[in-house]
Design a protein around this nucleic acid. Structure first.
Lengths: 256, 256
DNA sequence: TTAGCGCGTTCCACATATTGATACGCCGTA
DNA sequence: TACGGCGTATCAATATGTGGAACGCGCTAA
């Protein structure tokens, strides 16, 4: 285990997290390192291209090299490449914010999104995370995971809002519902007043690889709208699954 | 300068560049390191969360941590946050691929894009780079740079296609044209058969911060279309400039 | 106006973290 | 069945990284 590499990555992460360029002493205090250590690490990150001096003398900020590298990593995820037309189609029909998400651990990560043109809309960031059990796309993904994944769920779950599913048992029940009806709904379980509808996307092997869904204020998600949106997201998800090579007539058997 | 940190970042970059998970020996050969060095570095990157074992035993691949970090960095660039509605509007009007780009060195980097719904469309990746002198958005950005930037242009420029601008003098002449007419055109100067139209975006201080533009096959960029598209991209660029706080009546004086 | 404080930057003796050769078990192929 | 290349682990040697101290600068308070 290289502690110098770990320390360097910590420094990079701290600079990357910052809204404004950072100074050496401030970073040293935050990271509990010495000024000379931080200074020398920053010079190395500059040489590597990840960091550059800020406009104020003695400060440092991130370059876009991380973004270039990361975009390359994400661009090679097949589903993201193929999802665009389905997301755009869904955006036109619903006028709401559309997400493409994947499961990572017990979170979903938003790989892509199309913002709603309406002034009042759900806010999220590409690359952002949310707890899977609290959002529609997360529940859509969890519903098709195998026992090995579901076993890792703790008995008590985090409850960001009063509507959040708080126990593993209640979540498993809800996931059964998701499988039966083919879509998942978030009724304000992650952020107050923000809901959504999502459906699972399968690859050519019948493996769940992503979820596609829409989100917006819960006021715009009354039962009639949910019925409409659920049809639309399931159609979009099936279309994307088809373009990934999924050829089974219905849903695949539940993963082992 | 910490060579251990540099070496670690090299390993991470090699894994991030790869289309498939990589093995220890292969990485060691490519990076001219020993197997034990690569192996230990990968363990450190796993501990830091950037790398994980691949599905094939003994292989390694990137996680999405880079993407999460990088998305945070890019999300805080004001222009990217505010550009979405202008890009979507432009996409609806033109039906072509829309880009938001910034200048970095002598390249442009694509911060965001909206793909054209048409089957034949320009291909690019978010986070991707292009030589600024060869693309519309790059020329739009270069046109408003100061002497300090333009002086760095070499006398002979790279010529990816026969239509590329090949000399610094010819480029400066073209940049004068861009300033006068308010938009830049790419007539197949970067990729054969792919063209585009772009306009500059200013911030509240009158500094050029981005370019917004559309691209597509040159067959769809005949003079009548260029006239139409140039109006549309200038309107979108001005709207975005206004939302960034740019309040001057016309174009700002050329940067020093 | 002056002094003090905190900043960034640089230096280098020394402590320690990193290195890579080696060995081992596993797997695939001839 | 044997060989070669793989990934992984170990540890003595050594090369690298560390951090305390010093310096110059700029800002602020007295």
């Amino acid at each position: 285990m290289d502690t110098t590499l770990l320390k360097g990555l910590n420094v990079l992460e701290a600079v990357a997290r910052s809204r404004a360029p950072r100074g050496v002493s401030e970073l040293a205090r935050e990271l509990e390192l010495t000024k000379s250590n931080v200074h020398r690490t920053l010079q190395t990150l500059i040489a590597a291209g990840y960091v550059r001096p800020g406009s104020v003398a003695g400060t440092y900020e991130c370059t876009l090299k991380l973004f270039e590298m990361a975009s390359g990593v994400v661009a090679r995820i097949d589903v993201r490449q193929l999802a665009d037309p389905f997301m755009q189609h869904l955006a036109r029909l619903t006028k709401e914010t559309i997400h493409l998400s994947i499961l990572e651990g017990m979170d979903v990560i938003y790989l892509n999104k199309i913002e709603s043109p309406q002034p009042v809309r759900a806010y999220s960031t590409i690359g952002g995370r949310a707890p899977a059990h609290c959002v529609a796309s997360g529940k859509a993904l969890l519903a098709w995971q195998g026992e090995a994944v579901l076993r890792e769920l703790p008995a008590r779950l985090s409850s960001p809002t009063q509507r959040s599913i708080a126990s593993r048992d209640a979540l498993l029940e809800e996931l059964g519902r998701v499988r039966r009806q083919g879509f998942a709904v978030n009724r304000g379980e992650w952020r107050e007043g923000v809901g959504g509808v999502a459906a699972i996307v399968f690859d050519m092997h019948g493996m769940p690889v992503a979820a596609i869904g829409m989100s917006g204020p819960v006021e715009r998600l009354r039962p009639a709208s949910v019925r409409k949106y659920s049809q639309l997201v399931m159609e979009a998800a099936l279309g994307l699954s088809r373009s990934l090579g999924y050829s089974q007539p219905g849903y695949p058997p539940l993963a082992a």
